[in-house]
Simulated scan of single mutants.
Amino acid sequence: MRRTRMLAAIAAAGAVVAGPAAAAWADTSAQETINRLQQQGYTVNIDRLGTGPMSQCVVTSVRNPQTVTQWLPYVGPTLGHNSGTVLVPVVTSQTISVSLDCSGK
């Protein structure tokens, strides 16, 4: 039972780590795409082609989601009477790259 709870806690924490941003940028503006990624916790690195205003930019790709995790002690209900320290992965940072075409073609 103790092992099952520990694995459940690790799996739940892993689900948070495993969910990179979906490619839902096809029908949204460049700014909306960037905002959505930032709301998901990403630091967005932007590279752009052209000098047009953001309102004229088109997202050409969203790539390289990077998630950095750190193993920290589990804090919560005990996992049993003789439970030792249980470590779970915690997301410490997330970055993603967005390419924009702002050339107005």
Rank of each mutant, 00 (worst) to 15 (best):
M1W: 08
M1K: 08
M1E: 12
R3P: 00
R3Q: 14
T4H: 09
M6Q: 15
M6H: 06
L7H: 13
A8D: 10
A8H: 06
I10Y: 05
I10N: 01
A11Y: 00
A11H: 06
G14R: 11
A15F: 06
V17G: 08
A18R: 13
G19Y: 06
P20T: 13
A22R: 12
A22M: 07
A23G: 09
A24T: 14
A24S: 13
W25D: 14
W25I: 03
A26I: 09
D27K: 05
T28F: 00
S29V: 03
E32Y: 03
E32P: 00
E32I: 01
T33H: 02
I34H: 06
I34E: 07
I34P: 07
N35D: 15
R36E: 11
R36K: 11
Q39F: 01
Q40W: 04
Q40I: 04
G41H: 09
G41Q: 09
Y42V: 09
V44W: 05
V44Q: 05
I46Q: 03
I46C: 04
D47A: 12
D47N: 12
G50D: 00
G50K: 00
G50W: 02
T51N: 09
G52Y: 00
P53Y: 02
P53G: 04
M54A: 13
M54E: 10
S55A: 15
S55W: 01
S55K: 13
C57Q: 06
V58H: 13
V59W: 05
S61P: 02
S61G: 08
S61E: 10
S61A: 15
V62Q: 12
V62G: 03
R63A: 14
R63V: 10
N64Q: 13
P65L: 07
Q66V: 15
V68Y: 07
V68S: 14
T69E: 09
T69Y: 03
Q70V: 14
W71G: 06
W71Q: 15
W71D: 14
L72M: 14
L72R: 15
L72N: 07
G76D: 07
P77G: 11
T78I: 06
G80R: 03
H81A: 13
N82S: 11
N82A: 11
S83W: 04
G84Q: 05
G84K: 03
T85N: 05
V86N: 01
V88K: 01
V88P: 00
V88Y: 01
P89Y: 12
V90C: 02
V91R: 08
V91L: 06
T92S: 13
T92L: 10
Q94L: 09
Q94P: 04
Q94D: 02
Q94H: 09
T95C: 05
T95V: 07
I96M: 07
I96L: 06
I96E: 08
S97H: 10
S103E: 01
